[in-house]
Design a binder for these strands. Structure first.
Lengths: 261, 261
DNA sequence: ACTTAAGTTCCATTTTTTGGAACTTTTTTG
DNA sequence: CAAAAAAGTTCCAAAAAATGGAACTTAAGT
């Protein structure tokens, strides 16, 4: 067994509740002889993978790992990662998935994964739709404060469809619901007969924000399937949010959303 | 030579301009036989240190490193606390804030808070800049004695910009000023048109030292706003310094610094 | 389809790693 | 403050892994 395995195991010992390790910690956690633990920690420090805390016998990850780890974020940009999640969910359930960004009061599709079903929702990348009247838009608007949302619409807006928000108060109520539930939903808004589930997500370091969305024909999707779409999407988004340390992410709260239409 | 050395060398190949590597890259960069390069990359992937990009032959840092690297930022509670202060100040005034550490004669960004202003300073986490030619660097160098600073630069240095220190004597004079004022300032040094205010801070228990910095476009910031940035930053830093019993902390002394350019 | 470049596998040799035990240092405690 | 216990380090020969050159396979360019 290569020493790389042991080194990787050491890295896996670190967690939010264990910021540093000692020789004895490794003996306990990994069951290795303490002679090995001692040498391994020293070797990893000598190579710049770990550093000692002060001049104690405690070891913690070193700057090198912070730097390389940081690159991971850019190697896989927020859009890339969000796209991977949407692609996976879309593949699983066969419905169209896409991700969008907000520019002012408009939502713009960035990537799309067409579904496999005969009756499928087709979205054009680059198309602009009003933010307040779409699930993707509301998923992103929900990340703003009510005051910021009001500021975006100084003149108010006109609902383009029956099920779209009718007024600013209506919109704010639906954003509150979105925050509570951890996802936004639309029905017959942009396209009649189409339902969409969206989750908003951001990377505070770069300031990017995207919405992940799965869109499907309302008629053919059972309540159970809808729930599983919501779960898959929210779960994938939550993983990314944890990575980017997105503090404005709203986690899934299914108890309140079970009551949705 | 342990394979750990090679693995660490591979990690050091990554940078903000090289997000992934191939077998040939390693052969070129590290001068190793390609048989080794091939096996090493595969081994590192198998251990979860690297991952392949798509199904290509390109390797990039894996999630594990992102996670462990993330921990580094808060393993040192000093960084955690300093980050909180910079985050608060950055939020208040809308300009970019970040914290950095010194490794030898280089300064490395550890965390960043992008500003809200349209014209904002963007700093890449993990990038290295020379210590003597930045406000963060001088805030940290000011914590050393003149003799220690001289020892760091046995061969002297070359000023990379007009406003950077021109000589060792120049640098030492500016460090003395930094100690007197309680903060360091730069103008047009790393980036033209950018001004930065930095305060150094340490934790004698762990030996960690960090610089808190707020960076902003010189043109858009009034003298009064500059003073209020200095005050906020110095105040937050002073609180932490009191907590860690940092004896090398230089408190704010605005009477002397009012005369700064 | 051919040529070249890139990557992988093979193998005997060299080097590192392993784990138990003895040893040293640090911490705890009576 | 000294003895005891715990934690950490060093030593050694056996076992395992790494090395690098060459042959081989796969992918890319013409």
């Amino acid at each position: 067994m290569s020493i790389l395995t042991a080194a990787a195991d050491v890295l896996r010992c670190f967690s939010s509740t264990r910021h540093d390790v000692t020789v004895t910690d490794l003996v306990t956690l990994l069951g290795m002889p303490k002679s090995n633990a001692s040498r391994l920690l020293r070797a990893m420090r000598d190579e710049g993978l770990l550093e000692t805390v002060g001049d104690s016998k405690r070891y913690r990850p070193a700057l090198l790992l912070a730097q390389v780890g940081q690159l991971y974020r850019f190697a896989a940009s927020l859009i890339d990662r969000a796209d991977a999640v949407v692609g996976r969910v879309s593949d699983e359930i066969g419905h169209t998935g896409y991700i969008s960004v907000r520019r002012g009061t408009e939502i713009i599709g960035v990537t799309a994964h067409p579904g496999r079903h005969a009756l499928r929702v087709v979205t054009a990348i680059g198309d602009r739709i009003p933010a307040f009247a779409s699930s993707t838009g509301r998923a992103l608007l929900a990340r703003l404060s009510d005051a910021e949302v009001r500021a975006l619409y100084p003149e108010g807006f006109t609902a383009p469809s029956e099920t779209a928000p009718r007024s600013m108060d209506d919109l704010l109520a639906r954003l509150a619901e979105t925050r509570r539930n951890g996802f936004a939903e639309s029905h017959d808004e942009a396209v009649r007969g189409v339902r969409a589930i969206s989750v908003g997500l951001g990377d505070p370091t770069t300031g990017d924000e995207v919405a992940l969305c799965i869109s499907f024909p309302a008629a053919t999707v059972e309540p159970g399937e809808r729930l599983s779409i919501i779960r898959s999407l929210a779960e994938g988004a939550a993983e990314i949010a944890a990575l980017t340390q997105d503090k404005r992410f709203f986690p899934l709260n299914l108890t309140s959303s079970e009551t949705a239409p």
